[in-house]
């Protein structure tokens, strides 16, 4: 109803008096809107305008239009980089692990937790499960340094049960980097990501379970034939979002836990942008790399969304 009134006001061709009268009546609302508009223009749309830096030989302090236009020079440079293959590989491997192991872990946890019948115990476990989500990656990195140090608990435990003969320097071992990263990431996020599945499971119709019981399903059968299909829409939705984020590996873990010895396996697009842009000051080049990442990421969202709609009839866009 109110929508109609609003559109009538707008479509009436803005007679001067009426426009001013509307403005006067809504002055306090427009005052807030004006502040919000100034802010959003500077802090949200400003950086979008700044994406143009990638097409110019931009140097800070200069006006953009005084700089030389170089077209796609910096985009091409990124593809021709000797490191390009390595960075792409690391990015895809790390997010690939996140999208498989890191994606399945919370679902499995939610399913197992659902089988616990003691409510108090269940809630305690769940509360503990998402505690690591609330601490920063700096804290996680510090904890990892302690646990994985040469006289840390993990080394002592593995030596005590005879799996290894001498302490391993885990964080300096390139071959272990990806696996430690995915374990740390699961540890930090599993409980938090599981919340949405747990609430989806509690939304599954209880009568289905009774019908299943009549048809002779056991507990495993219930989980497989009722619970999982019941939360499938949620799973598909989150998977789409995950595919859209394929290139967003983040940089926090890499910058905090990576060492010079593991540089070859941890350098991803995000850390590369940071290193070249902020540390070395090659702003246009780093902007170009970031823009390229966003464009490909957006295309990935569109593709995965299209695929999901074809397969399941559901989508987010």
């Amino acid at each position: 109803m109110s929508k109609q009134t609003a559109s009538v006001q707008q479509s009436s061709g803005f007679p001067r008096g009426k426009f001013l009268r509307t403005l006067k009546r809504e002055r306090s609302l427009w005052a807030i809107s004006a502040i919000a508009l100034v802010w959003v223009a500077i802090f949200a749309y400003g950086p979008m305008y700044g994406l143009l830096y990638s097409f110019f030989d931009y140097r800070p302090g200069l006006n953009l239009w005084d700089c030389q236009f170089v077209g796609l020079k910096y985009f091409r440079e990124f593809f021709l980089l000797p490191d390009f293959g390595k960075i792409l590989r690391n990015t895809l491997v790390i997010s690939g692990l996140n999208l498989t192991l890191g994606f399945i872990a919370p679902i499995v946890f939610a399913l197992f937790l659902n089988e616990i019948h003691n409510t108090k115990f269940k809630r305690t476990v769940q509360t503990l499960s998402y505690m690591p989500y609330f601490v920063s990656w700096v804290v996680v990195a510090s904890i990892m340094n302690t646990l994985l140090s040469s006289n840390g608990t993990i080394n002592e435990l593995l030596m005590a049960i005879g799996l290894i003969d001498q302490p391993i320097s885990y964080l300096n071992e390139p071959s272990l980097f990806w696996w430690i990263q995915i374990i740390a990431s699961i540890w930090k996020n599993v409980g938090w990501s599981a919340i949405i599945y747990i609430s989806a499971i509690s939304g599954v119709d209880g009568e289905l379970y009774q019908a299943g019981a009549v048809d002779g399903l056991g507990r495993f059968g219930m989980a497989w034939h009722i619970t999982i299909p019941g939360i499938l829409p949620t799973i598909v939705l989150l998977f789409i979002l995950g595919v859209g984020n394929l290139l967003n590996t983040g940089y926090e873990y890499q910058l905090l836990v990576g060492t010079p010895m593991t540089r070859d396996v941890y350098e991803v697009i995000d850390t590369y942008v940071y290193r070249y842009g902020i540390q070395m000051g090659r702003y246009p080049f780093a902007t170009a790399v970031g823009l390229l990442k966003s464009v490909i990421g957006f295309a990935l969202v569109l593709i995965s969304n299209f695929a999901a709609r074809k397969v399941t009839g559901m989508s987010i866009l």
């Binding site: 609003a6 949200a44 830096y53």
Partner: peptide, 24 residues
């Protein structure tokens, strides 16, 4: 009935999907 309601909403929703990224 606020005339700028939809406009403000859309302007802000766009920022949820697009951003300039780290360097800009």
């Amino acid at each position: 009935g606020f005339s700028g309601r939809r406009f403000m909403r859309v302007i802000y929703l766009i920022t949820m999907y697009f951003s300039g990224g780290m360097i800009p």
